[in-house]
């Protein structure tokens, strides 16, 4: 297992190199000029040109790429062109906000979505199931920014219970997490429902029922564990995507998170911010997918057996051989 994790982490290196190259090329072909943004519209073309030279923007692409990688190898994510502060520091300051938001939003949607999905599956084809499907369809279809604005309007303006923006205390987190959780809850509930229905049709569920187990035990012990495997994948995916893409929620509730940071970087053509930001976010994503895979292996022995070390497998074969001799004798 440890070996598998190390292997997967090493595999991250080429992936990261590829991502950074793609980002660099995309930046290169995107119109806009950070030098012009920095010194403003009044500056002469010569001034801009001088600044470009100074920032190294006129160097050919391979050299810029090489320079970026070289910096990276020294643990340097570059310095923001706008704020003149290290990108690493700036991202580190903003990361806790995004992480809190994503953890709260995802946790909320998991806590709500999984039971709703199970409930709908267990009551398949009844009005309870239909209601759950209908609500989740609405929730998935509702644009998250609109729902966020509705929440602000109702709880922030009309009832005045919660602040409409900013996250100075716990109250501030309620609406953003809620806004974020709505679509995700529906997504998880739908996934959970369909996987649960799939698993409940399996023969081993009939076996479990035929053993005389209570319906609760059949559903929560035998079915849920099996049905959770694809759901974990979805949750992991959501979590990863949200780390980089909780932008809308961050903007609406003015949360100084990573999404906003990268967005500002994009507006300003702040190349180091874009490059490093995308790189870090994708690295986070990859790590989360790795964690998901590890959880898979923990839940599912079939996957786990693929990762176990060779010695263990050999021991297993030896045991099987012994079994065989016992059988034949």
């Amino acid at each position: 297992m440890v070996r598998f994790i190390i292997k997967r982490l090493l595999m991250l290196i080429p992936v990261m190199l590829g991502i950074s190259l793609v980002v660099l090329i995309l930046i290169d072909v995107t119109p806009g000029d950070p030098a012009r943004m920095m010194i403003g519209a009044q500056a002469t073309q010569e001034q801009v040109e001088a600044l470009r030279e100074e920032l190294g923007l006129n160097d050919p692409l391979p050299i810029r790429y090489g320079r970026f990688i070289w910096q990276l190898l020294h643990g340097d994510l570059g310095t923001s062109l706008m704020t003149k502060r290290p990108v690493a520091t700036e991202m580190w300051e903003r990361f806790p906000y995004t992480l809190t938001l994503v953890v709260l939003g995802t946790t909320l949607s998991v806590i709500l979505g999984i039971p709703i999905g199970i409930y709908a599956a267990v009551h398949q084809r009844t009005w309870k199931d239909n209601t759950a499907i209908f609500l989740s369809l609405i929730s998935v279809s509702m644009p998250s920014f609109w729902f966020a604005l509705l929440l602000i309007r109702f709880f922030g303006v009309y009832l005045g219970w919660l602040p409409i923006s900013g996250v100075d205390d716990w109250k501030g987190w309620v609406l953003p997490s809620g806004a974020m959780a709505l679509g995700l809850t529906a997504l998880i509930a739908r996934q959970m429902r369909s996987d649960m229905l799939e698993v409940l049709r399996q023969d081993y569920i009939t076996t479990a029922r035929a053993k005389g187990l209570t319906e609760g035990r059949v559903v929560y012990r035998h079915a849920l564990k099996n049905a959770m495997i694809p759901v974990i994948m979805v949750i992991g995916g959501i979590f990863g995507v949200m780390l980089g893409g909780s932008l809308i929620t961050e903007v609406i509730y003015s949360i100084p998170g990573l999404g906003q940071y990268i967005m500002t970087g994009l507006y300003n053509r702040d190349y180091p911010v874009i490059q490093s930001g995308v790189l870090i976010v994708s690295a986070l994503f990859a790590v989360i997918i790795l964690i998901v895979d590890v959880i898979f292996a923990l839940v599912d022995p079939r996957i786990r057996s693929q990762y176990t070390r060779k010695e263990k497998r050999k021991a297993g074969r030896q045991l099987a051989k012994e079994t065989k001799t016992v059988e034949t004798s």
Binding site: D203, Y204, T206, T207, G212, K225, N226, P301
Partner: peptide
């Protein structure tokens, strides 16, 4: 079920819970 009356199923490949 399982106590007084028990059942053996047709396909042993799918009759057991794969993760227990």
């Amino acid at each position: 079920r399982g106590n007084k009356i028990a059942m053996i199923f047709q396909d042993p490949m799918t009759a057991l819970n794969p993760i227990e």
